[in-house]
Write a protein that binds this DNA or RNA. Structure first.
Lengths: 215, 215
DNA sequence: GTATCATATACCGTATACGATCCGAAGCTT
DNA sequence: AAGCTTCGGATCGTATACGGTATATGATAC
C-alpha cells in the first residue's frame, strides 16, 4: 500500500478545477483570493500556487495586479481542443491497449461500470467519470508527456461538454460506444481501438459543432 | 507601445527555466527554496509559485515535504517529445504560414538573423534562439492551445539538444534547413512548410537517437 | 460633460513564525 | 557487526501580518 501524500496546493488544484468545471464560478469573473481562501479554510498562499498551476492548464488566466479570472469558452477553442485530441488520443489509446496489464484491465472495467451507474442515476459529475474512463484507457501507454497533455485537453474539452451537450442527455449512444471501445481495448486490438477512439471523439465534436451553431 | 507588466513569479518562471535549460542546476538535486530565493533577492512565495508552474511544464517535479527537483533526462522521454512535435508542429507551422501577417514575416526574419549571428559567434543560448525561431513560425497559427503545448514541447526538447547535440556543432546543416523553411513559409507554401518542418524535426531526432545509443 | 483627484478595494510581495516532515547520525539492541 | 531506534538539525509547508501598488469608483472642480 503506497499512500500518496499531497500537500494543500495539490489538493486545491483539484478542488478549484472541479469548481470551474461544474460552472460554480462564472467566466471572466475575478477570483477573490482572500474570500475563496477563507471559504475553503486555507490561507491564500497555497491557493495562489494552485491558481498558478491552473493557469498553466489553461483554465484560468491572470493579469498582473488584477488577479485570476476563469477563462471564457469559445467555439474556436472547442474546435481546436477536439482536433488536438483526435491527433493524439487514438494512437495513445491504441498503444496503451497493447501495453495494458491485468490491473489496468480491471481498473478500466470498474471505471466504466461506475460511469454507467452514475449516468443511470443522472448523478453529478458524469463528465468527471467520463474523463476517468478515457484516462484509464490511454494511461498505460507509457508516455508520460503525452498522458499529461491528454489530461489537460480532456479537462478543457469537458467544459464544453458540460455546457452544451450534457443537458441533452446524449449519454445512451456514448455508453454503447464506450462498451465497444472497452471490448476492443481488452482484446488488445490496437487498430480497432484507434478507429473507435477517433470516431468517438469526432462524433462528440460533431454534436458540439451543431450545438454551437444553434446556440 | 503597450508595455507588459509582469509580476515577480512570472519573471521567475523564465529565470529558473533558463537556469535549468542551461544546466546550471543539476538533475535530481533538490532546489533549496530559501537559498535560491535569497540568491535571487526575492522571497520564497513567488519562487514557489514559479516552481509550481514549472512543474506543470514538466521541468521539475515535487515531492510533498521534500521539495522540488529538476527532472532527469531520459532517452524515452526525448523520443516521446520529438514524436509529439512531429505530430503537431508541421501542421501548426503550415497553418501559420497561411495566416501570417507582414509583421509576423519581419519578426521571423529578424529572429533567424539573430539566430545566425549567435550561432556564428558560438555564443550562449543558441538553443533559446532556435526555439524563438520555430516559435515565430508556428505562433501565427491562431490556435492558442496548440501554441502553448508546442512551446512546452520545445522547452523539453531543448534540454536534449543542449546536452547531446550542441557540443557537436551541427549548426551548419540546421541553418540551411532554417533558411529553406523560412523561404517556403514567407511564400505561404503550406504544403512544403509542413514537409520541411517534419523533416527538420525528424533529422534532429535521428541525430539524437544516434547520440543516445553512443552515449 | 469632461477631467482630475481622493478613496476603497484587492492583489502582490515580504517578513516572520511555527508545526510537520524528512534525513542522517548517533546510540542502542541483538 | 548488522540492524533498528531515537534524536536533532534542516527544510518544507502553511498561516498571519504588514506595507506597497495597481485598479476601479465616486466625488469634486472646471
Amino acid at each position: 500500500m503506497s499512500l500518496i501524500i499531497r500537500n494543500l496546493s495539490d489538493q486545491l488544484v483539484d478542488l478549484v478545477r472541479d469548481r470551474i468545471l461544474s460552472g460554480v464560478v462564472s467566466s471572466d469573473h475575478a477570483i477573490r483570493q482572500d474570500a475563496l481562501a477563507a471559504e475553503l479554510g486555507v490561507s491564500k498562499i497555497p491557493l495562489r500556487e494552485a491558481l498558478a498551476r491552473l493557469e498553466e492548464e489553461g483554465l484560468v488566466r491572470s493579469q498582473a495586479n488584477r488577479g485570476f479570472f476563469v477563462r471564457s469558452l469559445s467555439a474556436s477553442e472547442a474546435q481546436e481542443v477536439y482536433e488536438l485530441r483526435i491527433k493524439l488520443e487514438p494512437d495513445a489509446t491504441a498503444l496503451a491497449a497493447k501495453l495494458a496489464t491485468e490491473a489496468d484491465h480491471t481498473h478500466a472495467i470498474v471505471t466504466l461500470e461506475t460511469l454507467d451507474h452514475v449516468t443511470d442515476e443522472h448523478g453529478e459529475g458524469v463528465g468527471a467519470f467520463n474523463r476517468a474512463f478515457h484516462r484509464a484507457l490511454f494511461r498505460p501507454c507509457g508516455q508520460p508527456v503525452t498522458v499529461s497533455i491528454l489530461e489537460r485537453l480532456q479537462v478543457l474539452s469537458e467544459r464544453y461538454v458540460r455546457v452544451h451537450l450534457e443537458p441533452l442527455g446524449r449519454d445512451e449512444r456514448a455508453n454503447e460506444e464506450h462498451r465497444a471501445l472497452l471490448k476492443a481495448w481488452i482484446a488488445r486490438d490496437a487498430d480497432q481501438v484507434g478507429e473507435l477512439v477517433d470516431a468517438h471523439i469526432r462524433k462528440t465534436l460533431d454534436d458540439l459543432r451543431q450545438q454551437l451553431v444553434d446556440d
